[in-house]
Computed example of a mutant assay.
Amino acid sequence: MDSKKIGAFIAVNRKAKGFTQEQLGEKLGVSNKTISRWENGNYMPDLSLLEPLSRELGISLNELLAGEKIEKEKAIEYSEQNLISTIDYTEKKIKNVHREISMFIMGAGILMCICSFTVFPSESSWGEIYSVLGLVLTIAGVFRELKKISLLKRGLVSICLFLMILGIFFFADYIGVTQFKRPPIYRYRTTTVFKDNKLIEYRNLFYHVYRINADTPNEYYLIDRKKQYTVDTVPTSPFNKDKSDMERLIQYQSKYVGDNSNTGRLIEALPLSEYGFVFEIDWKNCGMTINYHFTDWYDNDDLYIEKALIYNSVSAFALIENLEYINFNFSGSSYSVRREMMEQNYPDYQKIFSEDSIDTKKFNQYVEQKMNDNVFIADVFKVFEK
């Protein structure tokens, strides 16, 4: 069907009848813009409007479809041609509608997937639900478009595509967990317990994630790729391991306390730095004083201040070779500790070293893990002078 030819023919017959585009549109129940699109050849009239349109224009349906006047002796010939053209046009129209529906379904699915990752926070289970629903919609749209192959092949292709994209989602989620320190979007169980501090376990099909010290300044994540821990056995620290773990502190190891920039970075990485501080170096006596912008009795749940002072002291003495003493000043109190007292009274202090260097695994065993033992903390804290 030649839409340009038919459009021009509609315009000629409309004018011959003395109708404006608006008048013809009112008779057919469409807008004058629709009539204009027909006459410009941009659109064809709907099949349901062909007969009313031909009647209003005073022409036969055969002539309307041919786009020209037809002599009686050629009516049958044109009828056959118009019938073939109409069938072909109808098939194309159905295909276009089918494709539009498929594209709409796929578009809705893709939009739902995008929204699931951008609108919902990773802590919410709705992101997981909506991303899977969006993926199902997307694959449903693809399935509709694969009508040229057998039903079995359509199903296999759709399933494979679903699993492949879902795998990409899982991988992207894993990257987000490891790089941005957040809960996994895809998880089948979430467990919250209070073990020393708030602990949240997220179970993924391929790994577990532990959010330790949740909703505190010392929050950090442990990714259990081997799935070897549970909420009862996972090792925890009262401090932020991403900042204060010895594997990260080891970079600040120095022979002399006089390296101000190195000492400052070390203190910044240690617990209590989250409250702000300034420090002074005693060059002559190889000591340092740290003034925290914090009151020691405030927010001291579960002996946090005592644990931090012990951890900071052991770390600093182990990392700075000539450091002899440390003074910790708060707005409420002051504490002082000397190297010799820490070495003599901290159990297994010498075991954290291996051939004059710090063994990070043993440091974790004999220092970091001991920070969860309140009896141990109370006993060691006696070496501090107040």
Results as ranks from 00 to 15, higher is better:
Pro217Thr: 04
Arg225Gly: 01
Ile168Gln: 11
Gln179Ala: 06
Pro217Met: 08
Thr190Trp: 04
Gly155Glu: 13
Thr190Asn: 06
Ser150Asn: 14
Thr216Tyr: 02
Gly176Cys: 05
Gly167Pro: 02
Leu161Glu: 09
Met164Cys: 14
Leu151Lys: 12
Arg187Lys: 15
Gln179Cys: 08
Lys195Ile: 14
Glu201Met: 06
Val193Ala: 07
Leu156Asp: 06
Tyr220Arg: 01
Asn218Asp: 11
Leu161Val: 09
Ile168Asn: 09
Lys195Tyr: 11
Tyr220Asn: 03
Asn213Lys: 06
Ile223Ser: 04
Leu205Tyr: 01
Tyr188His: 13
Ile185Asn: 08
Phe180Asn: 15
Ile212Lys: 02
Ile149Tyr: 08
Asp196His: 11
Tyr174Asn: 07
Thr192Asn: 08
Ala172Phe: 12
Pro184Thr: 03
Gly176Phe: 01
Leu151Ala: 10
Tyr210Cys: 00
Leu152Met: 12
Ile200Phe: 01
Glu219Ile: 10
Phe162Gln: 12
Leu222Glu: 02
Phe170Lys: 13
Phe169Asp: 04
Arg154Thr: 01
Lys181Gln: 12
Ile149Leu: 10
Tyr202Cys: 03
Thr216Trp: 02
Val209Thr: 12
Leu161Pro: 01
Glu201Cys: 07
Phe170Trp: 13
Leu163Tyr: 14
Lys198Asp: 10
Thr190Met: 13
Ile200Asp: 03
Leu205Arg: 02
Glu219Lys: 11
Leu152His: 12
Phe170Ile: 13
Thr216Asn: 01
Asp224Ser: 01
Leu152Thr: 12
Lys226Leu: 06
Ile223Ala: 03
Arg182Asn: 04
Leu199Cys: 04
Asp224Ile: 02
